[in-house]
């Protein structure tokens, strides 16, 4: 990892962040390590509330008022953003890192024309005339497949798919090296989703940006990202090449995620992971997944596992990562998880 640091575009290390809530500080991100090279696509998956959006907002530097970075660094093109001044951060926003937000439907200001909202991003960072910014805006819209003359339209005159395309055009307006996408297509139907990802891939070939894609949808990650990071309760629990991680998960949570997928051409019922995520205000002392893990040992409840390398470019945060090949077949059995539904049991011996 360190050796590749020189050509790494985004390098997050030891990042922890928390929200202040009525019950105390909720540790929403904990010891996040993540690397993203130039032109690389990284998928980020994990169940709702695990901190994916928090991570992206922290990278963008637009955390809500009750959020705080507790530790760690976010290096973008070798410069740390956490310790940067507000003005330095503002310059990096959009020109360096742009973002396609989770709800494109609400991300456009209803009282400003779509074109104006794209043009203002250009004007905020580039020394160009209004006319030139507008010309670029129209070219951008055409590039993502929206008729340029629609630039004067207001968001409510756009369909959901068009709005999403407009946001993508906006994200690419300054040709940033890194684009973050937070569930860019969840609100859209599958056909439109396919179209949008197809044009996103085409644009990427032309413009060469890196993509950090957050999604619930494993299939999207498999199609679009060479590497994937799995998040659980504010922590990265596994990273690696997408194919390897999906084929041979190294963490019980990833095994569970894979089980929960409906398998095409298989009679097996998807198995849901029992239970829910831990309380982030008072997180478990040991492994954060322990309460839901069928393989948890006593040690797991007492001692948090570190993120360790298990193969070239692969890491997992599990005390039993080394035994995963023997645990995997058990994880495919509904029985294994059912045992947890009644009461948390000790792991069956391997």
């Amino acid at each position: 990892m360190d050796a590749s640091g020189s050509h790494s575009l985004l390098s997050i290390s030891g990042l922890s962040a928390s929200y202040s809530t009525q019950r105390g500080r909720a540790s929403a991100l904990s010891e996040i390590d993540l690397d993203l090279g130039k032109g690389e696509n990284l998928g980020l998956i994990g169940e709702s509330g695990c901190g994916k959006s928090t991570l992206l907002k922290t990278v963008m530097g637009v955390m809500p008022g009750n959020a705080r970075i507790d530790a760690g660094s976010i290096a973008f093109q070798g410069r740390d953003l956490v310790s940067a001044t507000a003005e330095q951060r503002r310059a990096v926003r959009w020109a360096g890192i742009s973002m396609v937000t989770q709800s494109a439907l609400n991300a456009l200001n209803p009282v400003l024309s779509v074109g104006d909202q794209i043009a203002e991003a250009i004007l905020a960072h580039r020394d160009v005339s209004r006319a030139e910014a507008w010309r670029r805006t129209q070219a951008l819209l055409a590039m993502v497949g929206v008729a340029p003359e629609r630039a004067r339209d207001f968001p409510h005159q756009f369909s959901g798919g068009m709005r999403q395309r407009a946001i993508i055009a906006m994200a690419l307006a300054l040709e940033p090296p890194l684009v973050l996408a937070d569930e860019p297509t969840t609100a859209l139907d599958v056909v439109v989703q396919d179209q949008i990802f197809r044009s996103l891939r085409e644009l990427q070939q032309r413009l060469g940006f890196s993509l950090l894609l957050v999604t619930h949808d494993l299939a999207l990650v498999i199609e679009n990202c060479e590497r994937v990071a799995v998040m659980y309760a504010g922590m990265i629990v596994e990273t690696g090449p997408t194919r390897d991680v999906i084929r041979r998960p190294a963490h019980p949570y990833t095994l569970g995620l894979k089980n929960a997928l409906p398998r095409l051409g298989s009679r097996e019922e998807p198995i849901a992971i029992p239970g829910g995520p831990p309380d982030l205000v008072d997180p478990p002392a040991g492994c954060r997944f322990a309460a839901r893990c069928p393989f948890a040992l006593l040690r797991c409840h007492a001692e948090p596992p570190p993120l360790t390398s298990i193969d070239v470019g692969r890491q997992a945060r599990c005390h039993r990562a080394a035994e995963i090949d023997t645990l995997a077949p058990l994880a495919a059995l509904p029985r294994t998880w059912d045992a947890l539904r009644g009461q948390s049991l000790d792991a069956p011996s391997a």
């Binding site: 637009v62 742009s98 989770q102 200001n109």
Partner: peptide
């Protein structure tokens, strides 16, 4: 969300306040 996006675009706080939020 559109205020957050306006911030992310790197607009100045004043611009976010008057052009996006106040409007």
């Amino acid at each position: 969300d559109y205020i957050e996006l306006a911030r992310m675009k790197g607009l100045s706080e004043r611009r976010v306040l008057f052009r996006h939020a106040a409007r």
